[in-house]
C-alpha cells in the first residue's frame, strides 16, 4: 500500500533513532523539554512538523492512526497529515478514537477516554510556557532547572486583575509530576483534567522549536491556580445541537447572517458516535452538509 519511493514513515532510520532517544529521555523526565534535531518536513512549520516527526518516530506497520485538528478528523490539516502517513507507511487509519493506537492531535484531546494501549501525540507551536513573560531562553532554562515558577503565577495574577477570573482558556499551564511546569499545547483548558493520570502515553513535538516532551501514563498533571481562584474548566449553557451532549467541548458555529448560531461538539467522532446511538440534539438533521445529515443518510 505504501509508496515505495519513500522510506517507511518518511524519515531515515538514523533520524528515527535520534527521535526515539529523545522520546525516551522525555518519558524519563516527565514534562522536561528535550532538544532534538528537528528535520525539514514536506510541510510548513505550524502545520504539525513536530507532531509528525514524533509520530514517524514511533509508528509501525501494525499501528492504526487517527489524526484530528481542533477535534475534527475532516479538516485540512488532519486530512493532509493522515494522507502523508498513508502514503509513507501504508498503515490503517481510523476516525474512531477507540480503534486508534496512535492519535495525533492539534488543539484537542478526544472526549472518549484513552487507554494504556494508546499514544497521544500533540503538535506544539511553542513549548516554553514561560516564554511570553521571560523571553530569554537562557533564563527560562535556569528557571526550570531551579523550579523557579513564581512567574507563571504572575500571568494568572494578571488574568484575575484584568478580568476578575483566570481568563486563560487554552495553553493553560500545568505542573507535571510535581516538578516541571509544562505547556499543554494550545488545547482548551477544558481538556487539562483529561491529562491528569491519563492511561495513555502523551508525547509532545515542537518542530520549529526543536523540542520533544512527554507525560508518561498515569502521571499527575496539575493545572496551576490560586487558593482563592481555583482552576475551573469552561461550561456552556447549551447542549450540542446535534447530539445533545452536555459534557463535551462545544464549538460555536454561526449559521446565518441574522445572528443565528449553534453549538456543536468539536470532537466529530464523539458526536457522530452519540448520534448513531440515538442521541438527538435540537437541530439534528436540519442542516445541509452537517455530520447529522451523513448520520441520517447512514441510518436511513
Amino acid at each position: 500500500m505504501s509508496d515505495g519511493t519513500y522510506n517507511f514513515a518518511y524519515l531515515d532510520e538514523q533520524t528515527k533513532r535520534m527521535i526515539r532517544r529523545s522520546i525516551l529521555k522525555a518519558v524519563a523526565i516527565p514534562g522536561y523539554q528535550v532538544p532534538f534535531a528537528s528535520r525539514e518536513m514536506p510541510m510548513p512549520y505550524g502545520w504539525g512538523t513536530g507532531g509528525v516527526q514524533v509520530t514517524a518516530g514511533i509508528i509501525g506497520p501494525d499501528d492504526v492512526l487517527k489524526v484530528i485538528d481542533q477535534g475534527a478528523d475532516d479538516t485540512t490539516n488532519a486530512i493532509s497529515i493522515r494522507k502523508f502517513f498513508v502514503r509513507t507507511t501504508g498503515v490503517k487509519t481510523t476516525e474512531q478514537t477507540d480503534e486508534a493506537s496512535i492519535v495525533q492531535t492539534r488543539h484537542r484531546i478526544p472526549e472518549t477516554a484513552l487507554s494504556d494501549k494508546q499514544i497521544l501525540v500533540y503538535q506544539v507551536p511553542i513549548p516554553e510556557p514561560l516564554r511570553f513573560l521571560e523571553p530569554r531562553e537562557t533564563e527560562t532554562r535556569k528557571m526550570h532547572a531551579l523550579s523557579e515558577y513564581g512567574l507563571m503565577h504572575v500571568k494568572l495574577y494578571e488574568d484575575i486583575a484584568t478580568h476578575g477570573h483566570i481568563a486563560t482558556t487554552y495553553d493553560y499551564p500545568v505542573k507535571v509530576n510535581g516538578r516541571y511546569v509544562t505547556d499543554p499545547s494550545p488545547t482548551p483548558k477544558f481538556d487539562n483534567p483529561k491529562m491528569d493520570r491519563m492511561p495513555a502515553l502523551q508525547l509532545f513535538g515542537a518542530g520549529r522549536e526543536k523540542r520533544i516532551y512527554a507525560i508518561p501514563p498515569y502521571t499527575e498533571v496539575k493545572s496551576l491556580d490560586f487558593d482563592d481562584h481555583p482552576f475551573e474548566i469552561q461550561t456552556w449553557d447549551a447542549a450540542c445541537a446535534l447530539c445533545n451532549a452536555r459534557d463535551s467541548f462545544l464549538d460555536e458555529v454561526i449559521i446565518d447572517d441574522r445572528g443565528g448560531r449553534m453549538f456543536v461538539c468539536s470532537d466529530t467522532d464523539f458526536c457522530t458516535a452519540r448520534q448513531a446511538e440515538g442521541h438527538v440534539g435540537p437541530m439534528a438533521g436540519t442542516l445541509p452538509g452537517s455530520a447529522s445529515e451523513e448520520v441520517a443518510d447512514g441510518v436511513g
Binding site: E148, Y149, G150, L151, H153, V154, Y157, I160, D225, F226, D227, D228, H229
Partner: peptide
C-alpha cells in the same frame, strides 16, 4: 509568588 504565595 516566587516564594510560594498562592492566595490572590
Amino acid at each position: 509568588m516566587a516564594v510560594g504565595a498562592r492566595h490572590y
